[in-house]
């Protein structure tokens, strides 16, 4: 898994490439919670190049989402492939996060 980060005004875009599994869920979660703790409260997680996310990855995402909520921040997701969307649906995670079809839409909603 690779993580690329860029800033667009006060919005941080975190782009994930590869798999979020038992080995990569920790660096993934640490990156998101690190950003929130550092005061970056508007985050778009771009999942266009995510291959899959395991339950360990969903746990990390839930913890980051909660931390964002507690910090009066917003964490949104965008660009899920149909395979990744299916995992969100199977795990009943779809309604727990704002999910947008494109990065641009996510940025517009957060701006």
């Amino acid at each position: 898994m690779d993580i690329a980060e860029e800033h667009n005004g006060d919005v941080t875009i975190v782009e994930i490439k590869g798999r979020i599994d038992s080995n990569t869920s920790r660096p993934f979660g640490d990156r998101l919670t690190g950003l929130i703790k550092a005061g970056r409260k508007r985050i778009v997680v771009d999942l266009k190049n995510l291959v899959y996310i395991s339950s360990a990855g969903f746990r990390a995402l839930l913890l980051a989402g909660r931390l964002a909520e507690e910090s009066q921040g917003t964490l949104v997701l965008c660009s899920l492939s149909s395979e990744v969307q299916r995992l969100f649906d199977l795990g009943a995670f779809t309604d727990l996060f704002p999910i947008y079809s494109s990065r641009e839409e996510g940025l517009t909603k957060l701006s």
Binding site: S54, S55, A56, F58, R59, L62, G65, R66, E69, L87, L90, G91, A92, D95, L96, F97
Partner: peptide, 17 residues
């Protein structure tokens, strides 16, 4: 699916997958 972000637990989801 009725549980919100605050109370949601992930246990069991992996086997469901």
């Amino acid at each position: 699916p009725s549980q919100g972000l605050g109370e949601r637990r992930v246990g069991g989801v992996g086997l469901h997958f």
